[in-house]
Amino acid sequence: MIFDFSIVPRYGPALLEGFLITLFICFIGLLLGLFIGGLICWLKIRFPGWGATLANTYIEFFRNTPFLIQVFLLYYVGPVFGISISAMTAGILGLGLYGGAYFAEIYRSGILSVHKGQAEAARALGMGEKSILYRIVIPQMWGLIMAPLTSQIITLVKESAILSVITVQELTFVGQRAISETYNYVEIYTLVAFLYWALVTALANLLKGLENYSTRYLNVRERSPNKLIFMKKQDVKLRS
């Protein structure tokens, strides 16, 4: 078995294009997920009764069903009700909805992990609950959640490969199409796998940098990654 390097010039450009699409859907899906997660977390904290029930239902559904099925529901069920969305839109939406369920719980455990005295000091100075949340608690939350957030973001990037099943023209899909043309699966899967691995590794390092930045105000010894209080064992899972 010899690695056929002629694959690189032949399929390199197509794979690169797929890689860029992967980057694009991951980026938009991630932003959407971070936003939806914030919304769900807010719902859960702001309205402890019905809001929390609604939020928990959402979270449990998206964390306990396969991403593939979620994507099927988005992509194939919509048209039945007369709502047609492109595979790409379904994919991005799927990543956002799925990621949001995990991010919501990560945010919440971060918020709960900020020391109680922090909010109390602000309260004692007459600050309102809203400014306390946005100016004292949430800025400190970021430093606490960067480690689990990083794992979840990486999971999200890897899950994006599943979108090939609904024909989103991303890296995995392009790879499979190339294989169906040439049967050079060793070379092509090696390339595809390498591109994902490189992306994930680069992302992990970037986010590590961001973690250091988000806790720059702490001593090095205080910067231990896991000061999070996890409410339940399964509250925040570090991978899909």
């Binding site: 109390e120 100075l125 007459g126 800025p139 400190q140």
Partner: peptide, 19 residues
Amino acid sequence: QEIRSRVGMVFQQFNLWPH
């Protein structure tokens, strides 16, 4: 809030905002 702003409080654990 108005009353609290007229009463200062100092805590055992300082509770300075680290960020």
